[in-house]
Design a protein around this nucleic acid. Structure first.
Length: 362
DNA sequence: TATGCGTGGTC
DNA sequence: TGACCAAGCAT
């Protein structure tokens, strides 16, 4: 029978973290904490929301931009929602931006501008779920909260060789995390678990030789850490198609409109498009074009969303300056960077106007 | 509990 | 190179 030599302990992980923690813009590292620096709950919350299903490298620039523009949660609460959406453009999962703004408003209006300092209090705010509530409570407020994200699920499932597939196995994993979470330095413990999952206990080819839990890990003792976590089978991704219309007038302006506030790309800016359907019969035509014009086929764009692949036929037209419709507006092509354009729309515009997002050089 | 919701990086 | 994946939330 395969055995491990000892039980995992928070102390061994924290000792590892003290040596190997990463310096991140929103993080108060152990050396900083030793100098008396304390985490700013606004910074912790903002980073945690941005990091939901999003990589650290992608978040860094957005985090800096948001802090420069809105230094406090009060500043963010007072910002126009359109400005927040435009600043979030490109980061994805745009409901996060809508809820970010709502959450800031709630903190300003209902909590005197200070974040609640308990897991339950945080959990009640828009855009804050189980993970983020626990993470902010632990990291910003030193609460003994069990923090479990995808990294922690991987670490725990391997440490205890939990074979129950996700998401069904989540409650058991959460229980294990809670038992392991220390009263002292719970925030560092949470960050250490996530760092461990991100750098050592990786999905492929984990570096078990460097892991502080390698003498306690059951999956390693079984010689099969990559087998965990077990996940439910995924569904296949359907293909949808549609057409997008890029109209440019004599003033060098492009016709844009706002998507409805909910659902896919909710509240974001778009060029006019047809519906995106599962049909593959090629009937995307120009019937749905915003203006009668000499629409020219300008190629296609493919974009992969979480649950479907979209193939857009791009049409371009030069139209008279007087052309108008009441569902959108004309925007100078030179000002597109300031718009709340999701990546798929930037792709569509670039297909029609290759230089649209190239900054004019001096 | 299952589904809808973006994007970019990795191998 | 396409499949997988990343500090999840709302409904």
């Amino acid at each position: 029978m395969t055995k491990t030599s000892q039980s995992p302990s928070a102390a061994s992980l924290l000792a590892w973290y003290d040596r190997h923690h990463r310096d991140l813009p929103w993080r108060v590292s152990p050396p900083m904490a030793a100098r008396g620096v304390t985490p700013d709950p606004y910074h912790i919350w903002l980073s945690e929301v941005m990091l939901q299903q999003t990589t650290v490298p992608a978040v860094k620039a957005y985090f800096a931009k948001f802090l420069e523009r809105w230094p406090t949660v009060g500043d963010l609460s007072a910002a126009p929602t359109d400005d927040v959406m435009a600043a979030w453009a490109g980061l994805g999962y745009y409901a996060r931006a809508r809820n970010l703004k709502k959450c800031a408003e709630a903190v300003a209006a209902d909590h005197g501008g200070r974040f609640p300092d308990t897991e339950d209090g945080l959990r009640a705010l828009p855009g804050i779920g189980d993970y983020t509530a626990a993470a902010v409570a632990a990291i910003a407020f030193n609460r003994q909260a069990a923090v479990m994200d995808g990294n922690v699920e991987r670490v725990i499932s391997r440490l205890y060789a939990i074979s129950t597939p996700l998401p069904a196995g989540k409650p058991l994993m959460k229980q294990k995390v809670a038992l392991l979470t220390p009263a002292d330095r719970p925030g560092d413990f949470a960050q250490a678990m996530m760092d461990l999952g991100a750098t050592i206990c990786t999905p492929k080819r984990p570096v078990c030789s460097l892991c502080p839990f390698n003498n306690a890990c059951v999956a390693l003792a079984l010689h099969d850490p990559e087998h965990f976590p077990v996940k439910a089978a995924k569904k296949d991704k359907p293909v949808r198609q549609g057409a997008a219309f890029v109209a440019v007038n004599g003033e060098g302006e492009i016709y844009l409109r706002r998507r409805i506030a909910s659902g896919l790309l909710g509240g974001m800016t778009e060029v006019p498009t047809t519906g995106w359907t599962a049909r593959i019969d090629g009937e995307t035509g120009t019937d749905a074009a915003p203006f009668p014009a000499d629409w020219q086929a300008a190629g296609t764009v493919t974009h992969v969303f979480t649950h479907f692949e979209l193939r857009l036929s791009i049409y371009r037209a030069q139209v008279a300056s007087g052309s108008n419709r009441n569902d959108g507006w004309w925007e100078p092509v030179t000002n597109l960077e300031a718009q709340a354009l999701p990546t798929v729309m930037k792709k569509a515009i670039t297909q029609a106007i290759p230089r649209a997002f190239i900054k004019a050089s001096a």
